[in-house]
Design a protein around this nucleic acid. Structure first.
Lengths: 147, 147
DNA sequence: TCCTTGTTGAGAATGAATCTCATATATTTA
DNA sequence: TAAATATATGAGATTCATTCTCAACAAGGA
């Protein structure tokens, strides 16, 4: 029964930190979301859930969640850092439309072996990475064509 | 003789804009650099070269250079946007060490076909992308081991 | 020459992210 | 159990890269 709370709790303990109520609430809020989020959106979710957690604590907890491997930094959009949680689903890349801002995903299965081999060649210890592809989604591409 | 100035000038003309002295000086400064740079560093180079260009104009010109394809956004480090110019050298990915901040590069030749095929499948018009790999460089990895 | 449009510098404004600090709450030690 | 130590938190101030505003200026066309 390796649930998120347990993983986070162990991670914190290893660092001499505690799984407090605010941290628990933030963790729950993160895993209640099924898409990308930024700090402010996460804060809104917490307010809706009547969790009395300050924005400062949200910002303080995000790096911990990152380091624990429970969430990942997925991209940067409109000068905000966007995150997403990881529940065992495979790593993916993001297709970001510069016109409508939509984001879709694709599996990275075909790329991973290449990256891992390249890292080995460099003697680089790969911890995290991001692959973001910017351009026009099919919707906007068609829309522009019809004008 | 397709030099950068000509490329930029044509790009600007197409948009009804002019290649002014400040823009020319910024372009020169960009191509005088042989590594990554951010807006502030570019501004410093301009000051050293006695080019009287304001920081605001630097920030205003960067998006133009991006759109013209002469530079690309290479990554974000310490909450600053980092750019690099492109002079025909192939696209590459970045290995970013989280400890010493060093950045090294690798060719993307092996990945490009995959990305292009994936884009076609999605009917996505790929304009730009970034692949950044974070972790520990061999130097820091060894250093940590010896402690 | 007049008019429209693009350009610039200087400084103000923005806003995400971080920091400060006084106060609380655990955990350890005596 | 009490005192000492270390960790957490909220509220608001602060930072700092980036963007915006605005007045002055320049170029090109009618």
């Amino acid at each position: 029964m390796q649930d998120h709370e347990q993983i986070f709790s162990r991670f914190l303990a290893k660092k001499g930190l505690r799984l407090t109520l605010p941290r628990k609430q933030i963790l729950d809020a993160v895993f209640s979301l099924h898409s990308h989020f930024d700090a402010e959106q996460l804060f809104d979710v917490l307010r809706i859930r009547n969790a009395e957690v300050s924005l400062a604590t949200v910002y303080r907890t995000l790096p911990l969640l990152l380091e624990s491997g429970l969430i990942q930094h997925s991209m940067r959009q409109e000068s905000r850092d966007i995150y997403e949680h990881i529940f065992g689903h495979p790593r993916h890349l993001h297709w970001i439309c510069r016109q409508c801002g939509s984001v879709s995903e694709t599996s990275l299965d075909n790329i991973m072996p290449f990256l891992e081999r390249a890292a080995q060649e460099q003697h680089f210890e790969l911890e995290d990475f991001s692959l973001n592809l910017m351009g026009l989604c099919w919707r906007c591409k068609n829309e522009n064509r019809n004008q």
